[in-house]
Nucleic acid binder design. Structure first.
Lengths: 214, 214
DNA sequence: AAGAGAAGTTTGCAGTGCTTACATTTGCGC
DNA sequence: GCGCAAATGTAAGCACTGCAAACTTCTCTT
């Protein structure tokens, strides 16, 4: 977003924009935030950036490529906050760590619902082509695997099937997040302002249930 | 919607179609089945039904209204199969019943992924306007509430918060179904042909965990 | 047999993603 | 500095979409 060799650093940027690519991603992110993924059109993004409707195609070959860049930016933020939260809740107890991971995930999803929506639906962007995103996604998954494996090794869980345990944990947390996004919570008697707390309570209930009985 | 006084029940139906409304819903359902909800366009549905692109608007005021009718048809099938499966697994044990409900839900979702996708995303159709659908949805939810309440009364669960227990059960099952639809399973090391069985195993793990320890 | 209403059609408008041809600007080798 | 190629913008246009209006055809009622 800097302007090193540009002659007119501020307003009257005629023709060449300076950093259109990043501007488009930022505008797109805002659009998604306002109206969800399907509210994003290339032309509207161009309008917001103050360029012609064909300009974005100089930087992205298709709408899906633009969405991929937006998803990558969203994942960057998710990844950063996820690790920040994990570091803050530094604990060596594997069950505590399992819980902290789930809470960090839920927290981000509930507070960034439209960004989470983009990340979760892999028909919306080119998952295979987003190398960095895939690495960060894998890192989050691996963090969970580490915690679960440690808990299993310590004999703390009622099952020793790491893959199944992971799937169960992720399944619940993913489901709660998507129920919120897809508008199911009201139908289950969960009000807007208590949704996140209820989701955490559900996670706690699962964690308690997975723990090995005395 | 039958054809009591029609003169030409079969082929050469010129102009008036006879039962276009139902034909459109059926064609739409097939379209959704093939390519998911976003693959459905009013014009393509019209093409398949062999009518002009404006004809569907005689029966549905908008694309969303057509999608709502499609969702209602999908829900009708889901509801029917759900109850058929529940009746087949007739058992009075509340924990068994809880499990049977979850399995029936998972089974339908995994075998009708695109139809499930439509039903699950409430931005795709007019949920509030679909009275019958809402009633059937509520019935499925109520079946779960009955089972959970019975289990709590029988002192079989580690929590007595029915709402939280329901949310946890639904959250897991919904999450597993959506993970499948959104294409997350491969990344979690779950192959296509074992996905449904793994989901059931996760449900069993949750059920075991929710049960009151001896 | 007449006429009204239902259910089709054609035409057209505004929006979309994307392409092609053209214009401007900028960085780089000389 | 100069000049040219590449990068990056624009304008115009195509095929598609959802949807509205005006018109036509059929069917049902009386």
């Amino acid at each position: 977003m800097r302007t090193p060799t540009k002659r007119k650093p501020v307003r009257p940027r005629a023709y060449h924009h300076g950093d259109l690519r990043q501007t488009l991603v930022t505008a797109g992110l805002a659009l998604v935030e306002e109206g969800g993924a399907e509210a994003l059109s290339v032309r509207e993004v161009a309008r917001r950036a103050g360029v012609s409707s064909a300009a974005p195609f100089r930087h992205f070959p298709s709408r899906i490529a633009l969405m991929t860049a937006i998803a990558e930016e969203a994942m960057r933020r998710f990844h950063a906050e996820f690790h920040r939260a994990l570091d803050a809740a530094a604990t060596s107890d594997p069950m505590e760590r399992f819980r902290a991971i789930g809470i960090a995930y839920l927290r981000w999803a509930f507070r960034n619902p439209t960004h989470f929506q983009v990340l979760s639906d892999r028909t919306l962007f080119d998952f295979e082509g987003a190398t960095e995103l895939r690495r960060q996604d894998e890192e989050i998954r691996a963090a969970m695997e580490v915690a679960v494996t440690a808990a299993v090794r310590a004999g703390r869980l009622r099952s020793d099937d790491v893959r199944l345990l992971q799937l169960t944990g992720r399944g619940l947390v993913y489901g709660l997040a998507r129920m919120q996004i897809d508008g199911h919570m009201p139908r289950w008697g969960v009000a807007e302002d208590e949704a996140e707390a209820m989701a955490v309570a559900a996670l706690d209930l699962l964690a308690a249930g997975l723990a090995k009985p005395a």
